[in-house]
Design a protein around this nucleic acid. Structure first.
Lengths: 305, 305
DNA sequence: TGCCATGCGATAGATTTTCTACTGTAAGAT
DNA sequence: ATCTTACAGTAGAAAATCTATCGCATGGCA
């Protein structure tokens, strides 16, 4: 048995062979497989050499199966069908998972990365609830949440740090070019400030300009951080936001940081889920995906009591 | 169908998985597969990630199959058995090949290397005819011969030089230590000479001692060179033989060369086979093996007419 | 309790396999 | 004669696989 298994030909070549027998044309087989004709020719040639016999007769503009190739592929096809069917039987039914997040987290971080999440977990049907309201795991049927704050988040809940909130000031490079660089507190008078519900500006400015800064003359207020960020990108003013939410915008140059100043206020973003989740598999999978996508690999576990 | 086939998991990982299920131990599976434990762990981990489920429970010092893994491997094993059996059915029947050689070539060169030949060509059933008689390719059903002589060997035959005969004198280091070194022709009187059917000694001594050597007082005669070689190894005297036949004995120290003198008599060893062999594949394969094993890689072709 | 053995996890780098882009050849079609 | 189709073959690039090593957890033994 072990000997029998060990003498398997190249399985990759067998796979190519089976596809070619259906098309009797290397170019079409290559298209199905998503490789070049040369790669297909190479694999078939290698298999013929390995087996020591010809599987195809090469005719001008077409291929014909040899008798050996014909009898062989019947069994090879059956084997691959077995594998395919066995693999299909492993796939569980689509699992549902409801995830509650803040609107800013949804729009600035999760949704841009959603294709990766759905590709990684095609069998998980996601429902994303993006609201400032705190949803209840039991009554609102939420399986997983990304919460802003500090642990503990409630009894019977696990909370792992997703990312630390580091508040920074950002603005559009076009706006800075138009209104000039910010070097001193007085320069702030030239800029509108974009406010969200956090109201971190006073504390931030105290830190950025310890010797004092003049209060800006123009302020625009939003109820969500993501709206302030979009306005900053549109050149409407300067916004304060968590560094994590604007990594993409900073990388692409839509936004630049104004100061090196960073503000930490002791509240961060956590992955929160019940100790005994209804859908343990998908919850664990999405937790892991979140952690990985946030760049941490392993979550620091904060026990909640 | 095409979609079904295209969604195959990594076939290499499946192969590793199947082996691990038989051992429930990565190290033992690695041994069977001829790779490291790390490679096995990597493949299994990749498969579990690809399938999105655990195939094994890891316990200290052992593995257990999950229920999913158990049901999966039954089908996977069947698929691989299908492939293996289909591949076996492709292999032609063992091919027969009769090779005619001299007894000395058989015993001093071919038989020590036989394991390598059979391992390289497990589907060739060898019949080795070792005799001083010249066998006929047609009437004696010989497919291949290693002949001593010079071309041409007959009509309708191909002959390629296998190795040149370089006659040297050899003896056992123990005998030399006992009877003293040979510096002059007179020293020969102390040694018995071992003779074979070639009777090269007179010519060899003329070349080794142009000023003359005294005839030894003791001579032992054999009808085959290999017997003379064995007697030399046993310390019965000095033998003349082709350098090619005693390479192994010289390397191991069972024999040493007495003089730097070498005699070439214009007859060498050739691979000889019919132009139209009955078993062209196996004849070509063994010819190639002989040439490679003799260290030439490519044979110098001597046309026979 | 300390030490050793066993056995999987993980990773950076090495090696092998697979693939690509390209050229060549042969045949068919116009 | 020219163009199209289709496989053959190859050098080099890219991807997959493997290796050697270290780490961690557990069990066994003196």
């Amino acid at each position: 048995m072990a000997d029998s298994i060990r003498r398997l030909p190249s399985l990759n070549a067998l796979r190519v062979f089976e596809v070619v027998t259906r098309h009797l044309n290397f170019r079409l087989a290559a298209e199905e497989l998503g490789v070049t004709q040369g790669a297909v020719a190479q694999q078939v040639r290698g298999l013929e050499a390995e087996l020591g016999l010809k599987l195809f007769e090469r005719h001008p503009r077409t291929l014909a199966l040899t008798e050996a190739g014909r009898s062989y592929v019947a069994n090879i096809r059956r084997a691959f069908e077995l594998i395919s069917e066995a693999t299909e039987m492993l796939r569980p039914e689509p699992q549902h998972l409801t995830i509650s997040v803040t609107p800013t987290f949804a729009s600035k971080w999760l949704i841009p990365r959603l294709p990766d999440l759905t590709a990684s977990h095609p069998n998980i049907d996601l429902r994303i609830v993006a609201s400032d309201r705190i949803f209840n795991f039991q009554t609102d049927a939420v399986d997983l949440a990304v919460r802003y704050g500090r642990p503990p988040f409630g009894p019977g809940l696990n909370a792992d740090l997703l990312f630390e909130q580091v508040v920074v000031a950002v603005g559009s490079p076009l706006l800075i070019e138009k209104l000039g660089r910010l070097e001193e507190g007085i320069d702030l008078m030239r800029y509108p400030l974009l406010h969200d519900a956090h109201n971190f500006w006073p504390q931030f400015l105290d830190r950025a300009f310890p010797q004092g800064a003049l209060a800006p003359t123009k302020n625009i207020r939003f109820n969500q951080t993501s709206l302030a960020i979009e306005a900053a990108i549109a050149g409407q003013g300067l916004a304060l936001t968590s560094l994590f939410f604007v990594e993409d915008d900073l990388a692409s140059g839509r936004l630049v940081r104004l100061f090196a100043t960073e503000l930490r206020v002791g509240s961060d973003f956590y992955i929160v889920s019940p100790r005994k989740p209804r859908h343990a598999g998908s919850v664990a999978a999405v937790r892991a995906w979140l952690a990985l996508a946030a760049g941490q690999g392993t979550c620091a576990t904060a026990p909640t009591r």
